[in-house]
Design a protein around this nucleic acid. Structure first.
Length: 275
DNA sequence: CATCAGGCGAGAC
DNA sequence: GTCTCGCCTGAT
């Protein structure tokens, strides 16, 4: 067990922010996650976070995965005090972090995310993992499925993929899996690229457009200047920033601020619907 | 029954 | 380059 203290870490908010589809709430203050081919349980009491793994595994994997070396308090402190909307959304979602997730997994996950809702995205991904991922047992005896490899998905037919409720996205997954498996698109090269070049390369994948490419850049490549624009963000931009969002002011923090905005909007709508 | 969910590709212009 | 349209599926 590794315990760390951080005022800008909320496992709950990370779960609910919709950037990581394989992290779940599994009890009172308890969370579980499948990532990096591993299964991890997390407990959190206020600002104390406990990772159920060895110090070695934490140092090697999870410290970077949860972006623990970035000071999010500094990001929040950089917000213009006059911008009351941005101040409010950042205060509300201050425990969100931009995770450093697997590139291949994010490509497939965000192709699935298009014109879809978070609940169904999670279900589609779990079905894919159960059907095409390797089954493993964690150190504490929990069975889980790895995210499928490019090879595993390249070998699936469009009809097989449709059986995972992927709908019209099935053909996107099939073609993209083949492009990656056969080396038409080189993920290692993309990992070494700057934001603009990486996005341009990702746009070559069938089923990856501007919004999905930005999500991949932000959540897998940690290009925190990427600012994914979906229907919700576009509506917020219209309402709050009719003259445009001040990207020049926020630069490499723009993507982090996008997450605060998105999460606030999402939670606010849930609340409105529950009245 | 219509509309919407973290869009995208194809075709028209 | 910009615009429109159709698309799987499940929830409301």
């Amino acid at each position: 067990m590794v315990t760390v203290q951080n005022k800008n870490f909320s496992a709950l908010q990370i779960c609910m922010s919709g950037q990581c589809f394989r992290m779940n709430i599994c009890g009172e203050n308890k969370y579980r996650l499948v990532a990096a081919g591993r299964y991890l349980e997390i407990t959190q009491q206020e600002d104390k976070i406990s990772f159920d793994c060895t110090q070695e595994e934490y140092d090697k994997i999870w410290d970077a995965y949860f972006d623990m070396e970035t000071d999010y308090e500094k990001v929040i402190a950089s917000i213009d005090r006059e911008d009351s909307y941005l101040m409010a959304v950042a205060a509300y979602g201050k425990g969100i972090r931009i995770l450093q997730q697997d590139l291949w997994e994010m490509i497939i996950s965000f192709i699935i995310s298009q014109q879809n809702n978070i609940k169904r995205i999670r279900k589609c991904i779990e079905l894919l993992c159960e059907k095409y991922g390797e089954k493993k047992i964690s150190a504490n005896g929990v069975a889980y499925f790895d995210f499928p490899t490019p090879k595993a998905l390249a070998n699936a037919s469009v009809a097989d993929l449709r059986a995972c409720n992927l709908g019209y996205r099935s053909k996107y997954i099939c073609q993209t899996a083949n492009a990656v498996y056969h080396g038409d698109i080189d993920l290692e090269k993309i990992r070494a690229m700057e934001y603009d070049a990486a996005k341009k390369e990702l746009l070559k994948l069938y089923g990856v457009g501007a919004k999905v490419a930005d999500c991949i850049c932000l959540f897998a490549l940690h290009k925190t200047d990427a600012f994914p624009r979906d229907t919700h963000i576009n509506k917020v931009m219209e309402a709050q920033y009719p003259n445009g969002f001040p990207f020049e002011k926020y630069g490499e923090n723009s993507g982090i601020l996008q997450q605060y905005i998105f999460y606030y909007d999402l939670e606010n709508k849930k609340y409105m619907n529950n009245i």
